[in-house]
Nucleic acid binder design. Sequence first.
DNA 1: CTTGGCACTCGGTTTCCCGGAGTGCCAGAG
DNA 2: CTCTGGCACTCCGGGAAACCGAGTGCCAAG
Lengths: 339, 339
Amino acid sequence: MLEPRKLEVLRAIVEDFVSTTEPVGSRALAERHSLGVSPATVRNDMAALEDEGYITHPHTSAGRIPTDKGYRLFVDRLSSVKPLSSAEKRAIQSFLEGAVDLDDVVRRSVRLLSQLTRQVAVVQYPSLSRSSVRHLEIVHLAPSRLLLVLITDTGRVEQRVLELSATLSEDDVAALRQAFGSRLHGARLVDAPAALADLPDAAPTAIRPVLTSVMSVVLETLVDRPEERIALGGTSHLTRHVLDFPQTLRPVLEALEEQVVLLKLLGEVNDPSTVHVKIGEENNVEGLRSTSVVTMGYGPEGSPYGGLGVVGPTRMDYAGNMGSVRAVARYVGELLAGA
Amino acid sequence: MLEPRKLEVLRAIVEDFVSTTEPVGSRALAERHSLGVSPATVRNDMAALEDEGYITHPHTSAGRIPTDKGYRLFVDRLSSVKPLSSAEKRAIQSFLEGAVDLDDVVRRSVRLLSQLTRQVAVVQYPSLSRSSVRHLEIVHLAPSRLLLVLITDTGRVEQRVLELSATLSEDDVAALRQAFGSRLHGARLVDAPAALADLPDAAPTAIRPVLTSVMSVVLETLVDRPEERIALGGTSHLTRHVLDFPQTLRPVLEALEEQVVLLKLLGEVNDPSTVHVKIGEENNVEGLRSTSVVTMGYGPEGSPYGGLGVVGPTRMDYAGNMGSVRAVARYVGELLAGA
DNA sequence: CTTGGCACTCGGTTTCCCGGAGTGCCAGAG
DNA sequence: CTCTGGCACTCCGGGAAACCGAGTGCCAAG
């Protein structure tokens, strides 16, 4: 069942099919890969592989193509992540370093990934909930109007305007600024509620009512609205694979337009230690059942900022795409950590 | 050449073709539209319309389809913008009002437009260069590190971190804040250079070097980087029209991925007084030559915030799409003006 | 100017046929 | 027991031929 030659045959089938898009037959296979055996022998192995579910027939008199299970085995045991050339690495680095702000980093990453892999690229903005507060600014727009600006360590900025029932003096605002600033600075967003717990009691009674209403908005912004954003690019690459998507690419495009779906995709496994691959039916997302998804988290291990990856036909260059995803994830992680 | 009946025939052809996607013949046309004449007469008119370039033949024995020129005439003279139902209007309003910040407004507009029109929707973020400063905040992150946060009247936020060679005291920062704040508050971004012109001279010599370097970054952020952003959605609708795009939809998707292209599209005519339509070859953008684009500016007349619109096959429901685009543009304009 | 009639064109569909690629199986050799 | 060559069989894909029908252009008459 795991005889080396059969594995070798499977590898050959995957490689040939990925590069030619055509079902591969025993003769061609025996010729192109120096397996040292005759087509007939290959046929026997193929039959066995088919019995075990690694490959199929589109129809009787056609060559074989890998099944999802076949790809899975290929990814797990037969291929390794392909490192990028040093030229590519340099290109990535310099392209990413040209970014002026977080938005730019994300946009560039998307472009980079989709160009490297020639697939659809997906990049999640650094998650709010896992970041910490670099700065919380409270701006006094008008007597009863405040603007909160939250800046995280990953460069993300969130802002909120809030209308108060009372009017405030500059001193009041300064007091608020001080109260929140001292408690939140450097704190992780998830820890915000704890950090602020004693605030109402500690504050001067005069501003207490205002303070609590500001506090609720602050907490809401920091914690309750883990509104995650996603950037997407390279969808035109999908059209190259029209043949690969039986029911046309409609459902795929639809799925990709759903932020929620993408978040689920990247959220399921976004640990920055290794690349993850979901193949075909393994995807829990209806509509992406005919695609494969290669993802990886970026940022510090254990508390990643977010995830990124590519989506393409199951017939994809796994080794290469995994290499690109890994490389980009690492650079983005470093870049944001250093920012 | 402009006899009413011939125009009527053209209208009928456009309407039928748009709704059926099939070349329309003289018989069907005479039946379905009560023109009061026989198919033979219609044929004569059709021949004339063809001579004048408003319609064509895909092949000898097929019905007629409108040319770009035909659609143009149709849009200009034969159809009027279709107002939305009041239910639709209410839906738009309530959906847009639910937005919590600018990003959300834009995202919702895209979604709204693409759902209303069932086409690809494009929305430009409020242009920086045409907005004015609501607030410029200078935050003292570290002794020699400042964070600038610019908030415009349309709710857009831009931020920049800058490293200084000198270290600053809190008082210095307060002075900077005061210097910039007083001059910029409420100023239009384009007027920023003028507003700041006298600043170096007026400032205390102590902070002058710092001030000029801050100033250059401020100006760069405000003026030199009119980096416009675009949101896009509904691309899956394109797949419905695979038939309409001869060379597959590849080039269309590619064009849509280019921010620059989209900006050009929306930039060319984004005045908020009327809806604009570009049909097929009228588009200067290679790759969108087989599509039509319906656009409109939003915001105050004369100084719009930005533009929005939809992109679809030339065979589209012009009246309906124009109505939707206009309605959304108006609501978005009002919403941002009131913010 | 409009209309009915009519011959003609031509694309789309269906049917049929054939070649070729590829398989599965078997019997013999190592 | 494994590998190999041989061989019959399957079946897709493409090309040719035939057919159908929608639609046109034109003409002669109302």
